[in-house]
Simulated assay, not measured.
Amino acid sequence: MRMKTFAERLNKALRASDMSQAQLASRVGVSQPAIWRLASGQTSTSRRLVEIANALNVSPEWLMHGEEILNTERPSSIEVKNTDDNSYHIESLDIQTNSDIDVTASTGLSETIKGIIYTTEQANALFGNRSSKVVKIITVLSDSMSPSIESGDLIFIDISVNYFDGDGVYIFALDGQLYVKRLQSMYKKLAIISDNKKYETWYLDEEEFSYVKIIAKVLLRLSSDHQRFA
């Protein structure tokens, strides 16, 4: 019988793997209450989806959507079909309802735009074969990344990249504060760079970087520089 909800599938996979919620939380690096919220249906997804699926020996597709049987063949990325064959819906990133992140300050980002719809052809040109489930948008309200990203710009991000995936621009949390910065790997340290030269570059050593929670990698921006005609 097909499990209808994420919580049902998660609990089935936990039973099949003979794993407790605490053990799963430890394996994927989240708190036990975060797993409890998923298993009880209080939250319906996690940014650690791929890690949770790997730990439970199931595919991310099955865990998220129930579209595959429980098995050990796990694809490298999440592929989800849109209900409308010619539309690609991108939703705003919602930090406040994320069960894995405790952010107390997020003044640099805003959910100004609730969503954007592209045709699949446009989306493929912009995002390649990424599923709409992993592409999100959010508005940047800081000038720290100017001129690469101006205050008021929309950025498109990939929430499946919740780890350091090489040099690039990321959204990450540290000590309850949310940042959009360029991360650059250096010998035994990580540079956190603001493209705006008015802001200083700072560095984290290997131990300090373990406290960084990467939320997503920035893919591209949509400029807020509008030309008014009326």
Results as ranks from 00 to 15, higher is better:
155 I>D: 02
150 E>P: 00
159 I>S: 12
193 I>E: 08
17 S>D: 05
180 V>A: 11
183 L>D: 08
95 I>R: 00
17 S>W: 02
218 V>L: 15
108 G>L: 04
9 R>L: 11
65 H>Y: 11
183 L>E: 09
171 I>T: 07
181 K>M: 08
66 G>T: 01
92 S>V: 07
41 G>C: 06
5 T>E: 12
189 K>Y: 03
152 G>I: 05
150 E>C: 11
73 E>Q: 14
93 L>T: 00
37 R>C: 03
125 A>D: 03
20 S>N: 08
114 K>D: 11
142 S>T: 14
163 Y>K: 11
42 Q>W: 08
150 E>H: 13
107 T>K: 15
39 A>K: 00
137 I>T: 05
66 G>Y: 09
211 Y>W: 03
55 A>R: 02
45 T>H: 07
198 K>A: 11
2 R>T: 14
118 Y>R: 03
4 K>L: 15
123 A>Y: 12
199 Y>M: 05
54 N>A: 08
60 P>Y: 10
202 W>A: 02
199 Y>E: 01
147 P>L: 09
208 E>Q: 14
119 T>H: 06
63 L>Q: 05
42 Q>I: 12
197 K>R: 15
117 I>L: 06
209 F>Q: 15
80 V>A: 15
97 T>R: 09
123 A>M: 09
41 G>T: 09
148 S>Q: 10
67 E>H: 07
198 K>R: 13
14 L>S: 01
132 S>N: 13
42 Q>R: 13
175 D>T: 10
212 V>G: 07
25 A>F: 08
122 Q>P: 04
197 K>N: 14
87 S>R: 12
21 Q>P: 00
45 T>W: 11
167 D>N: 15
195 D>M: 04
11 N>W: 12
191 A>H: 05
75 P>D: 06
208 E>D: 08
82 N>E: 13
147 P>F: 12
111 E>Q: 14
26 S>Q: 15
208 E>G: 08
148 S>N: 10
206 E>F: 04
140 V>S: 08
127 F>R: 03
76 S>P: 10
134 V>T: 11
155 I>G: 02
100 D>V: 05
161 V>Y: 00
45 T>G: 07
31 S>P: 01
221 R>K: 15
102 D>F: 03
216 A>V: 00
56 L>R: 07
204 L>V: 07
68 E>C: 02
114 K>T: 05
24 L>N: 01
